[in-house]
């Protein structure tokens, strides 16, 4: 039962939708399914998929993207071969999303500094959580003058974890693409290799940590 503090919500994937034409479904049927999720990150790594530029068209002949960070689909509805994760784990919602993703993807790739080791959000690992929240909400130089300082806390807001964790400390991750963000070349190389049945290989010429 919904309480007053938790108003009824409908996620977009629960809304009625017109089924795609049979020809489109048939064309998708033979493709490798891929999904992407964004945890605690900035979406820059997702944008690196777009940096594959026109190569993405060839990739999409083999791969269909069932869920991306650009849509509002909360959970993937069908099992996927490739799961692409950007962002580290910084709250309970991230943990649930990541565990659901692990259970429903054959291969998980941690993409970008945040997913690989925590990245910029993990800079808060050097201070206590209460000090971090106080700096952000109570003593913020951009606080609205005269407004009562409040640290957000509400059942609808996911509870923040004490530290930011790399994805592989929460679930098993199969491959890693470092970078902040990784280049389109690195993202394309890995996705193209996996889509064509080749092993993961990130040569030193495109492996970057910044």
């Amino acid at each position: 039962m919904k309480t007053q503090t938790s108003p009824p919500q409908t996620a977009s994937h629960e809304l009625p939708a017109t089924p795609p034409p049979a020809s489109l479904l048939a064309a998708r049927a033979g493709k490798i399914k891929m999904a992407t999720i964004s945890l605690c990150g900035c979406w820059g790594c997702t944008l690196s998929i777009l940096d594959c530029d026109e190569r993405i068209l060839g990739l999409l002949d083999k791969v269909t993207i069932t869920r991306s960070s650009l849509t509002d689909i909360k959970r993937i509805a069908e099992r996927c071969t490739i799961g692409f994760i950007e962002g580290g784990v910084a709250n309970e919602e991230n943990i649930e999303t990541l565990e659901h993703f692990r259970a429903n993807c054959d291969i998980l790739i941690a993409v970008g500094a945040c997913a690989v080791w925590g990245g910029v959000p993990a800079m808060r690992n050097l201070v206590e959580l209460k000090d971090c929240l106080a700096q952000a909400y109570l003593h913020s130089p951009t606080a609205v003058a005269g407004a009562k300082p409040v640290i957000p806390f509400h059942p609808e807001i996911p509870r923040i974890t004490a530290k930011v964790y790399p994805c592989h400390e929460v679930v098993k991750i199969d491959y890693f693409i470092p970078g902040c963000p990784p280049s389109g070349d690195a993202v394309f190389k890995v996705l193209d290799d996996l889509a064509n049945g080749r092993p993961f290989d990130l040569p030193s010429s495109i492996n970057r940590y910044d």
């Binding site: 080791w117 890693f176 990130l202 030193s204």
Partner: peptide
């Protein structure tokens, strides 16, 4: 250190990141 990381093909550390102060 970064350049050596690229040369040995490191993508992630197999050890827990310590976040030393």
């Amino acid at each position: 250190l970064q350049a050596v990381g690229y040369e040995v093909g490191m993508t992630v550390a197999r050890f827990p990141y310590r976040f030393e102060k």
